[in-house]
Measured scan of single mutants.
Amino acid sequence: LTVQLGNLEWHFDNPEQALKMAEELAKRYQLKVEIDNGTLKFK
């Protein structure tokens, strides 16, 4: 699973870790998370 923020990307083997990080980033920057083809992206 990949977490993508702008041109930064983090790759996780563990989806739970990816979701946890995505939630933290979304909270911190007040963004919405969307999943696009196995990639978590922020809007």
Rank of each mutant, 00 (worst) to 15 (best):
Q30P: 03
Q4F: 07
K41A: 04
Q17W: 09
G38T: 07
Q4V: 14
Q17P: 05
A22F: 05
T2A: 06
V3L: 09
E24L: 14
W10V: 06
G38V: 04
N37Q: 10
I35F: 14
Y29N: 03
G38S: 06
D36C: 07
N37K: 08
G6P: 03
T39L: 10
L1P: 04
L1C: 10
F12Y: 08
P15R: 12
K43W: 12
N37T: 04
M21N: 01
K27Q: 13
L25W: 08
E34R: 03
E9T: 15
L25F: 11
K20H: 11
Y29G: 02
L31V: 06
K27H: 11
K43R: 13
K43H: 13
L1V: 11
K41S: 09
D36V: 15
D13F: 07
N14F: 07
D36P: 00
D13N: 12
P15D: 08
H11T: 08
Q17S: 11
N37E: 10
N7Q: 13
R28T: 07
E9V: 15
Q4T: 10
F42M: 11
K32F: 10
N14W: 06
N37P: 01
Q4W: 07
Q4G: 04
E16V: 13
G6D: 05
N37D: 09
A26N: 03
M21R: 03
F42Y: 03
H11F: 12
T39W: 08
T2G: 04
F42R: 00
T2N: 08
E24A: 14
K32L: 14
K41W: 09
P15F: 15
I35G: 02
L40E: 01
I35Q: 08
V33P: 03
E34F: 15
L40G: 01
K32C: 05
A22W: 04
I35R: 09
Q30G: 15
F42H: 02
G38K: 06
L8D: 07
T39F: 13
K43V: 15
N7T: 13
K43Q: 12
K27M: 11
I35N: 11
L25N: 00
G6Y: 05
V33Q: 02
K43G: 07
E24I: 14
L5E: 01
Q17C: 08
G6C: 11
G38Q: 08
K43D: 06
D13A: 11
M21Y: 15
L40D: 01
E34P: 01
Q30I: 04
K41G: 04
M21W: 15
I35E: 08
K32E: 13
I35V: 12
R28V: 06
A26P: 00
G6A: 06
W10R: 02
N7Y: 12
E34W: 15
K20W: 09
A26Y: 07
E23V: 10
E34M: 12
T39D: 03
Y29H: 07
T2W: 09
Q4S: 08
E34I: 15
W10E: 01
I35P: 03
Q30N: 15
K20Y: 07
D13T: 13
L1E: 02
L31K: 01
K20D: 06
Q30E: 09
K41M: 08
T2S: 08
L40K: 00
D36Q: 13
Q17Y: 10
M21I: 09
E9C: 10
T2D: 04
T39M: 10
K27R: 13
E16T: 10
D13H: 09
V3R: 00
L25M: 06
L5G: 03
L1D: 02
V33H: 03
P15Q: 09
K20M: 11
F42T: 02
M21H: 10
F42E: 01
K41I: 14
K41R: 11
F12S: 01
M21E: 03
W10A: 02
G6S: 04
Q30S: 10
K43E: 08
L1Q: 04
D36M: 12
D36I: 14
A26F: 07
N7L: 11
F12V: 04
M21P: 00
F42D: 02
M21S: 03
A26K: 04
Q4A: 08
K41H: 09
L31P: 00
K43I: 15
L40R: 00
E16A: 13
Q30F: 10
Q4Y: 08
D13L: 08
A18D: 01
E16I: 13
E9L: 14
V33I: 15
K43C: 07
K43N: 09
D36L: 11
T39P: 00
Y29S: 01
L40H: 01
T2H: 07
E34L: 12
N7P: 11
K41E: 03
W10Q: 02
L8G: 05
E16G: 08
N37A: 09
G38C: 05
D36K: 09
R28I: 09
Q17I: 11
L19N: 04
A22V: 06
L8F: 14
K41V: 13
L8H: 14
E9D: 04
A22H: 01
T2C: 12
W10D: 00
G6H: 07
T39A: 06
L1A: 07
L40F: 07
M21Q: 04
T39C: 04
I35K: 06
E9S: 14
K32P: 03
P15S: 09
V33R: 00
A22Y: 03
L1Y: 14
A26E: 05
A26G: 05
A22N: 00
E9Q: 14
E16Y: 11
N7M: 11
N14P: 04
E9Y: 13
N14A: 07
L19S: 04
L5T: 03
A18I: 05
K20A: 14
K20T: 09
A22Q: 01
Q17M: 13
V33G: 02
Y29W: 08
L5V: 06
L31D: 02
P15E: 09
L25D: 00
V33Y: 15
K43T: 14
A22C: 03
Q4D: 03
F42V: 14
K27W: 09
A22K: 01
E34G: 02
L19P: 00
L25K: 00
Q30M: 09
A22P: 00
L5Q: 02
H11Q: 06
E9K: 14
Q30V: 04
L8T: 10
H11S: 06
L8R: 15
Y29P: 01
K41Y: 11
F42C: 04
D13E: 13
P15T: 10
K43A: 12
N7D: 12
W10L: 09
Q30R: 06
E23K: 11
G38E: 06
K32R: 11
V33L: 13
L5N: 02
E34K: 04
L25R: 00
T39I: 15
N37F: 04
H11G: 02
V3M: 06
E24S: 13
W10K: 02
K41F: 09
L19C: 05
V33W: 15
G38W: 04
K20R: 13
H11P: 02
V33K: 00
L5S: 01
R28F: 07
L19F: 14
L1N: 05
G38Y: 06
Y29K: 01
K43L: 13
E9P: 03
H11Y: 14
N7F: 11
K20I: 10
L19Y: 14
K43S: 14
N14S: 12
E34Q: 09
F12G: 01
F42N: 01
E34T: 12
D13M: 07
E9I: 15
W10F: 08
L1F: 14
K27S: 11
L1I: 13
T39Y: 14
L5F: 15
G38M: 06
L40W: 05
G38I: 04
G6E: 05
T39Q: 07
Q4E: 05
K27G: 07
F42I: 14
A22R: 01
W10H: 02
F12K: 01
F42P: 01
V33A: 05
A26C: 06
N7H: 13
Y29T: 03
L19T: 05
L40S: 00
V3E: 03
L8C: 14
D36W: 10
A22E: 00
E24Q: 13
F12C: 11
A26W: 08
A26M: 07
A18Q: 01
L5R: 00
H11A: 05
E16D: 12
H11V: 08
V3D: 02
G38R: 05
A18P: 01
I35S: 05
V3P: 02
W10G: 00
L25S: 00
T2Q: 04
I35W: 14
L1T: 10
E16F: 12
F12L: 03
I35T: 05
M21L: 15
F12W: 04
A26T: 03
P15W: 15
Y29E: 02
K27E: 12
Y29R: 00
L31E: 01
E23I: 12
K41D: 02
A18T: 02
W10P: 00
N7C: 10
V3S: 02
K32M: 12
I35L: 14
T2L: 10
F12A: 01
P15N: 07
Q4K: 12
Q4N: 05
N7E: 11
E9G: 03
N37G: 14
L1W: 15
H11I: 07
K27P: 00
D36R: 08
E34Y: 15
L40T: 00
Q17H: 13
N37S: 07
L5H: 05
